[in-house]
Design a binder for these strands. Structure first.
Lengths: 195, 195
DNA sequence: CCTATTTTGTACTGATTGATAAAAAATAAA
DNA sequence: TTTATTTTTTATCAATCAGTACAAAATAGG
């Protein structure tokens, strides 16, 4: 049975996507509730009725970001290509994202640097994302060792964590230097590690 | 000859240090001019008379941060130890900074993620810092190759940029995961690249 | 002492902040 | 149709924002 009362005039997921975009673009502090109303198309009343507060909306936007992108990242890492190709593709994917028009980098990294030390919601979402990536890296590095594609002398967790570091470093360097050439050289250097 | 008029009652560099700390702790947007007055000890009049605006103060604080830390980083990289030891010490230094009590990470990385795309002052300062680090890395890697400590097959710029990426990645991962164990494993994995 | 100049402290500005109140509007269930 | 329930719209709130006005205070030079 449907609940009674006036029905919602908006799609909650579309609103979350719009809110996510604004937080992504401006950061949490620089994003006003008026910005959120403008971009979502909701009035103040509707927005507060549906989400409670700016911070709760932020929370849901971060969760949505995590769920959406971990799926895309997983699909790259679990393709049927050789392990080394998959790792390289993953870094190349990051470069594509960081250098497409109006790129905003990674919302979770941005959020961590802006608020990670003081906002447990940010801390939680970012840590969860990084842990899932680390696990994925570990699994396919193990797969590479098992198949003989990677050296059996590699420590799986050490390699997975080092690759995780390279990935986060690449995104941070891209935000800092905005040099695609540099990014490509970093990928080349990083992949030289896995041989 | 000294200029006439009432003399300043504050030390400009001490004020800049205090302002830098607040920006570092809260970020630009979350830091109010009242916060700045409280922490610097200056009244509004003095602060605006001396620095003009919140943003100009931010600019000087970022510059001061850059100058201070590039000096410390240079001294680590230009010590008399073997090249590999210096590179390792540099990463270990980052871990010490990131895990000391009330660590705030790196102001320039935080600033880049919060405002790098929209604030050319941030963009400029962060890029300058990263470029200087890249240059330092390149010089000592070349030194290592010349002395035979590092493989002559390494590309200097590629290696320097990859190491730069590892350094920025380490700091970003530290902000995200807060795991010293993970940080140490990343250093081990990164240093395995240079052999 | 007198004047010019600069800094300092205080009060204040209009704009914007996140959030709320209350009534109108729109539905389901009775 | 009536009632209960929910959403939407609009007006509004106190608090805070970055920045300013201005007079008092403190100096140097004459």
């Amino acid at each position: 049975m449907t609940k009674s009362g006036r029905p919602r005039a908006f799609d909650k997921e579309a609103v979350l996507d719009a809110a996510m975009d604004v937080f992504w673009e401006k950061g949490y502090e620089a994003c006003s509730t008026e910005d959120l109303c403008n971009r979502t198309g909701l009035g103040r009343g509707s927005l507060y009725n549906a989400f409670g507060s700016k911070h709760e909306l932020y929370e849901q936007a971060l969760d949505r970001y995590h769920v959406y992108w971990i799926r895309e990242q997983t699909s790259i890492l679990e393709s049927s290509e050789p392990v080394k190709t998959r790792l390289r593709n993953f870094l190349e994917w990051a470069i594509e994202k960081d250098f497409e028009a109006d790129s905003k980098g990674c919302l979770l990294i941005n959020a961590t640097m802006e608020r990670g030390r003081t906002d447990s919601t940010v801390e939680r979402a970012s840590m969860l994302h990084a842990e899932k990536l680390e696990k994925l890296f570990g699994e396919i590095i193990q797969e590479g060792i098992d198949s003989g594609e990677l050296s059996a002398e590699l420590s799986v967790t050490e390699s997975a964590r080092t690759f995780l570091c390279s990935f986060y470093g690449l995104r941070t360097i891209n935000a800092t230097m905005r040099s695609r050439d540099m990014a490509e050289q970093i990928v080349a250097g990083t992949m030289r590690f896995f041989n």
